[in-house]
Every structure is written in C-alpha cells, then in structure tokens.
C-alpha cells in the first residue's frame, strides 16, 4: 500500500522470525484505514475493542451501531458494521426504535459526554428507564473534543477548558455529572460499569466488560447495558498522550472510580 523502502535506513528494526505465530493483529472488522483521531486518543482503542467483540461473538450480520455527534461522528468510517449517524444526543432514541421493531438485531450506541450527558440526557435516562435491551458505550473524557475543547458536563472541578478558561467553577457551572451512577438507579439498567483504556490492564478489563454487555443483549436479558469508559483527550487537555493518561489516572478516577456500578443480581 505504501512505499516502505525508505524506512530501513540506519535504525535496526527487528522483525519476526518466520517460525513465529501471529498472536495478535488488528481486527478484520476495523476498516483498514488510518483513523482521524488525535495521537493517543482513547476513542480509537474503544473502536478496536468494539470490533474485536463483534468478531468474537460473531454478530456482525445482525449488528447495527449508532454513531453520535462529536469526535466519533465518523465512527462508521472505521467500524465495518451497519451504522446510522444520529442527531446530537439522540443515538439512544434511534437505537430504541431499531431494537423495538427488530428485537433480534444487536444494537449499540457510541456516545461522548456532550452527546450522552448534556444534550441527550433525556434520551439517555428514558432509554435506560424503558430497559431497552441495547448496549450503550459512553466515552467520558470531560471535554468537547471536536468543537475545540469546551467545557463538558463531566469536566472536573478546576479543569480548564476554552469555555471555562479559569477552571470549572462549581458555583457558576455546576458539578461534573456522574451519569453512570445516576442511571444505575433506574430499574431498567441491567449492567452499568465504568472502565478505562489508558493502559493494557484496563484495556483488558474494558474488553471483558464490553463482551459481557453484548452477551447480555444477545441473551435478551432484561435491561440496558451501559459501559462508561473514562477516556483521555490529549489535544483538548493540551497534553501529550502520556501526560494525558497520567493526568487521567491521577485525577479522573478519584471522581469517576472504576468498577462495576450495577451488575445483574444473580452474579452479585
């Protein structure tokens, strides 16, 4: 695809021996193009995990994804499953429409904090309250990335964004919203968990959570599965990817602790 001759100049790049087995590669369902996300962005990790899950559960032929408005608005350029692009905040309403008319389909929404926890709060709450048997993937990075780093409903106290340049002031701007904890209170929520993808350990856990969430939907268990993923936004936070992941671990988890918030009762 690319002219790669120029790489091998002076740096000694090691390559595998022919006898080695391939143990990990890019999932086939992740469309083979470079993505538009900024370096180090969590979005692309979650995209990959989603496609790994769809592949492993062999549900491509009945999976429909809903892309939000936000950085992941172009998710369908990477996720090789049928996808609809919803109006800002309305992804779960679209998903509800599909799932109700076609209960055999596997439907997931993929939304950021602005989409799911600000403009779409009503849809979020009522979709979960109706116990729609869908998977909601929530990327919480505490900022509006696509529009240039404005304050999000989940922005932490004191965090600086382009619309709270002096840092979020709780008296003026309200409190960061813990939407996962909120919806866990609803009887329609079946599985609510908060994960992250900032290191390999958390990536493994998030994959397991996603697998569970989709499996619950396949099994037709009663309720909505909600996977929040505490994510970074190196560009929006004005940090390098490493700094961003470091900041995330030091600051975000205190307010948004990782772990299951609600799990099916018999598994407790």
């Amino acid at each position: 695809m690319y002219n790669m001759v120029d790489v091998y100049i002076s740096e000694r790049i090691l390559t595998p021996d022919k006898s080695m087995d391939k143990v990990w590669e890019r999932p086939d369902l992740l469309i083979d193009v470079p993505n538009h996300y900024c370096p180090g962005c969590s979005h692309s990790v979650v995209h990959r995990l989603l496609m790994e899950v769809v592949e492993e559960l062999d549900i491509m032929e009945r999976t429909i994804g809903i892309a939000p408005v936000g950085c992941s608005v172009l998710a369908y350029d990477y996720l090789n499953v049928d996808m609809q692009e919803a109006a800002h905040g309305r992804a779960t309403a679209c998903a509800s429409g599909i799932k109700r008319v076609f209960p055999d389909k596997i439907v997931f929404t993929y939304q950021g904090d602005g989409d799911l926890a600000a403009i779409g709060t009503s849809e979020t709450i009522h979709t979960v309250n109706r116990g729609e048997n869908i998977v909601m993937v929530f990327i919480n990075n505490g900022i509006y990335g696509m529009t240039g780093g404005q304050m999000a409903p989940t922005t932490l106290e004191g965090a600086k964004t382009s619309t709270c340049p002096e840092g979020r002031n709780l008296d003026l701007m309200g409190h960061p919203i813990k939407i996962a904890d909120m919806i866990a209170l609803l009887d329609g929520a079946y599985y609510v968990t908060r994960q992250a993808v900032h290191n390999s350990k958390t990536v493994r856990k998030t994959k397991k959570a996603l697998l569970k969430a989709f499996q619950y939907q396949i099994d037709g268990k009663g309720g909505t599965s909600f996977v929040e993923i505490v994510s970074n936004c190196p560009s929006g936070w004005k940090m390098t990817p490493l700094e961003a992941n470091d900041w995330l671990a030091k600051n975000m988890f205190e307010y948004y602790p990782l772990g299951n918030i609600k799990i099916p009762q018999k598994e407790e």
Binding site: Q84, A93, C94, G97, K105
Partner: peptide
C-alpha cells in the same frame, strides 16, 4: 419521552 425522541426512534427504525 418527547417528540424529539419519537422522531429519532422513527429515524432508527425506518433506517433499519
């Protein structure tokens, strides 16, 4: 829960 949700449910289901 609202007309906004109704029309977007229509979008989803009709799109499917």
């Amino acid at each position: 829960e609202s007309e906004i949700a109704s029309i977007n449910m229509v979008y989803g289901a009709a799109g499917a």
